[in-house]
């Protein structure tokens, strides 16, 4: 019984929501909007639930003195400060804005900027012309890379100035992105879409049930 109920619900909602995509009638749209509203209402509860488990996890860490337990205090300090100011004074309060601009922004930007370093090291390690296909990929990648910045055209126009074709780096980059890249991407998108349909049918028909705890 415990397993049957979610399977029946999944089937019902799956079929009904699929139908609403093809029916513009006000009743079917009302059903669609209602279900979407339910989903939206769940979000804040999930957040509360998440906050509770976060607190539980870190309380346990502190209580059991699990390695690096001291950092759990930092979690609580951040959580309480932002929640206190945000709830009491709202997100437009200068204090909240200050914290956002001077804590959240630089921290997020730092993590994102790590990408520059990691892309460089990953590219150096992984970009090897081991096979013919890899060589083609490598050449295309290098053209897109250098065509992406103005220095690419500068080099092209200086070194290859004898060619009757200016700004070749950026134009070749555009061509690669607009043609080979586009067709390969479409292929992957088609495969993924069929995969999604297949997965959705398995879920709706209750064949794929590991998400409710596997087994029969």
């Amino acid at each position: 019984m415990k397993r049957q109920v979610p399977l029946v619900l999944c089937f019902l909602f799956g079929v009904v929501m699929c139908f609403t995509q093809f029916s513009p009638h006000q009743y079917s749209q009302a059903v669609y909007n209602e279900v979407i509203n339910w989903a939206l209402i769940m979000a804040p509860f999930a957040l509360i639930f998440g906050t509770i488990t976060l607190i539980q996890t870190h309380v346990t860490r502190i209580r059991r003195r699990i390695e690096h337990w001291q950092y759990s205090f930092v979690v609580f300090a951040g959580l309480l400060t932002m929640a206190f100011i945000g709830i009491l004074f709202g997100p437009q309060d200068p204090a909240f804005e200050w914290l956002f601009n001077n804590v959240q922004v630089p921290l997020d930007a730092t993590m994102f900027s790590l990408l520059a370093f990691l892309i460089a090291s990953a590219a150096f390690r992984a970009f090897r012309a081991r096979t013919f296909e890899a060589t083609l990929l490598l050449i295309a990648a290098m053209i897109v890379l250098i065509g992406n910045v103005p220095v690419g055209d500068l080099i092209w126009n200086t070194v290859l100035s004898w060619l009757p074709w200016d700004n070749g780096a950026s134009e070749t980059r555009q061509w690669i992105l607009g043609n080979p890249n586009l067709s390969a991407r479409r292929g992957i998108i088609l495969g993924v879409s069929l995969g999604v349909i297949s997965q959705a049918i398995r879920l709706i028909l209750g064949i794929e049930r590991s998400y409710i705890g596997g087994g029969d």
Partner: peptide, 22 residues
């Protein structure tokens, strides 16, 4: 974009060196 240009060139050069050595 001006500041990003040298990094792009650097990655380009690194990949070329890596492949030459390879």
């Amino acid at each position: 974009i001006n500041n990003a240009s040298p990094v792009h060139v650097l990655i380009f050069v690194l990949v070329v060196i890596g492949n030459t050595v390879f």
